[in-house]
Design a protein around this nucleic acid. Structure first.
Lengths: 217, 217
DNA sequence: GCCCGAGTCAAGCAGTTGCTTTAAACTCCT
DNA sequence: AGGAGTTTAAAGCAACTGCTTGACTCGGGC
């Protein structure tokens, strides 16, 4: 047990190497602009088919990257969910929705690549499904959404869904934009990931509480 | 003059053919998943290098597509800007920001591909710059942003920039999501592009007017 | 009215892709 | 201690990429 077999450690080490190399290259150059060969080489594998051996297709590699992170994010989310303990403040629930992502990015240290990676995958017609089932259908998220909805004023179901989608897009793409700015040494509106989350919570709460114009206007 | 030369018409016709074929393929399969060859073939050009001949690299083709649409969008925006005529209602100004995009999509008829195309290009590290300078730096947009800012309560410059970015991301990706849903025959929260715009305006105004939590919390 | 040049077509180029195959190196189990 | 099975390495494959080349078509200016 202690240290498992040396072989298994070696294997999971190269898997991890490939995973992080792929994530970096995908974020910097684009998922489809990078070949599996380049990923293998960047991971220090002389074997130019290492990606195929360990993961299969590029879609499988993308799924593996997404899963790795979404597990971490899920962990943070359940922790926050426990902390707010059925609070009545909608802000707390929105925080449960928002904070896991930027907090995860903060925990990764600098630089990070996951947000840019995720934004790309999310907008790609072929990969979109993958990341949805890997990140969005997991454990505690529906619980948080339900918690938010319960503390929300009466809204038609359609509007609820619409603003839920807005919150989702906002969280992802604002994080990706900040990550890009950090990578390019461009000024960012917020100093830390935590402050970024606070800004997102402010905005999303305001958005969710906004009055609804009847479409007949 | 009347009818120009028959030859020049033929040329601009095939250019247009390539442009729309590329837009559709890019939206449906992904910008990098489609080769210039495939675009040429889909445009009915026996010449497998037609894209290269008429446009150059793929980046140039993307720029051409973006320019074509952003000209139309710019036209709508200036029209709306004239209609609100220095209104004092912030809603009018936000409408000037939001409406041009969904209204342009509505004018294109169904189905459309531009929103999905745009969302992809916007998240791609290599193409991001292209569409920014082609769509966002154009004519009347800064004017609208300035108009919105003037009708906004006092906000720190950073927060202003942050929420501006949020509005931008929201408009683009919500339109892309609706377009995707339409293409897949999935239910959408709104029946029309106009209603979608109304929902976006509600949300963005609410977001912009939301109180700002001091990051010290 | 005839030749020039822009536009189209078709074939071919070297380079790269994903994937398969074969060989070597290594750990693990008996 | 050695055979077995797995991981890495390296080479090779057909398919496809962008790009160039040369022949053909045809409208327009001298």
């Amino acid at each position: 047990m202690a240290g498992r077999t040396a072989r298994a450690e070696q294997v999971s080490a190269t898997r991890e190497l490939i995973l992080t190399a792929a994530e970096r290259l995908f974020a910097e150059r684009g998922v489809y602009a990078v070949s599996n060969r380049q990923v293998s080489e960047a991971a220090g594998q002389g074997n130019n088919a290492a990606v195929g051996y360990h993961f299969g297709t590029k879609a499988d590699l993308v799924r593996a990257i997404a899963r790795k992170h979404s597990e971490q994010i899920e962990r943070i989310r359940t922790r926050l969910l426990a902390e707010i303990d059925d609070s009545d403040d909608i802000r707390d629930w929105v925080a449960c929705l928002v904070r896991p992502v930027p907090e995860h990015l903060a925990a990764l240290g600098s630089p990070t690549w996951y947000a840019r990676f995720c934004a790309q995958v999310m907008t790609d017609p072929a990969l979109h499904e993958i990341i949805v089932e890997e990140s969005l259908s997991s454990g505690s998220l529906p619980q948080v959404v339900e918690g938010v909805n319960r503390r929300l004023p009466d809204l038609p179901a359609d509007i609820r869904a619409e603003r839920g989608a807005m919150a989702r897009e906002l969280i992802l793409h604002i994080c990706a934009e900040r990550e890009r700015a950090l990578a390019e040494n461009t000024p960012t509106p917020r100093a830390t990931w935590h402050d970024t989350a606070t800004g997102l919570i402010d905005a999303i709460v305001g958005m969710w509480l906004a009055p609804v114009t009847h479409p007949g206007s």
